[in-house]
């Protein structure tokens, strides 16, 4: 079987398992909505605070809720030794990594779209002309996030306090990407104050894509060592 066919087979397998259980996506979405709801309540009385901190809340919710999805990405495989089953089959570990990244990217993007839907209502978003670039930034950020997070998730699943260690390792690694996403959010979510010229969101999206490419390439090379028995 060609690598491409294996790649799509693995994505289909992952999505089918998730579709039956609906565990990861539901947990992640519920956690994200709760975080956004609490964040919105804390600034509900002041419209200017909503505008000022809205984009920060949005990215923080994505960052925190995303780890719920990442930490569960290898849970079933580790628990039931299904990973060994996949690896004894003629499947390249690098292709398995890329397929896991693609499937988790879909879950996390679904969660981000739901969070954005809630954001529209709770934070009175009105800059609809920026929707396209926001989606591009979200997609690029998620690629960098999942690309780096998947390697760490494979290592921390099954460890004592693995979920906490995943966050401790992932968050500092994601700081450059978070800075880029926040810079993009400055001109997407609100009108920049006069005299200030934040970086163009397109430039931030390109920077995020570069981070994503670096994490994907290093993950592709390192992942076989992580799942080595």
């Amino acid at each position: 079987m060609s690598h491409l066919r294996v790649f799509f087979c693995l994505i289909r397998w992952d999505l089918a398992v998730e579709w039956r259980r609906r565990e990861t996506t539901l947990n992640m979405c519920l956690f994200a909505l709760l975080l956004l709801f609490i964040g919105s309540y804390s600034v509900a009385s002041r419209t200017e605070l909503q505008r000022e901190f809205g984009s920060i809340f949005f990215w923080m919710v994505v960052l925190f809720a995303g780890t719920v999805g990442l930490s569960r990405a290898f849970l079933h495989e580790r628990e039931n030794a299904a990973l060994t089953g996949v690896l004894v089959a003629p499947v390249d570990a690098g292709v398995l990594y890329l397929a896991k990244v693609a499937a988790t990217w879909i879950y996390v993007m679904a969660m981000e779209l739901l969070v954005f839907g809630a954001y529209l209502i709770l934070f009175s978003f009105d800059r609809y002309d920026r929707l396209g670039i926001l989606l591009a930034v979200m997609g690029a950020f998620t690629l960098a996030y999942v690309g780096a997070g998947m390697v760490l998730a494979a290592m921390t699943t099954g460890l004592r306090g693995g979920e906490l260690i995943l966050r401790v390792l992932l968050f500092p690694l994601m700081v450059p990407a978070v800075i880029a996403a926040l810079e993009a959010g400055e001109s997407i979510f609100k009108e920049p104050p006069p005299g200030e010229s934040p970086l163009s969101p397109a430039l931030c999206a390109v920077a995020l894509l570069c981070f994503g490419a670096i994490y994907l390439a290093s993950g592709f090379l390192l992942f076989p060592k992580v799942v080595e028995e």
Partner: peptide, 23 residues
């Protein structure tokens, strides 16, 4: 696992450096 982390974090050292120069 530590070696994988060591490589990943060493890649991040210049990445963080350039990200800051950019942003």
């Amino acid at each position: 696992y530590s070696a994988v982390l060591g490589v990943l974090f060493a890649i991040n050292v210049p990445l963080v450096w350039f990200a800051i120069r950019l942003f």
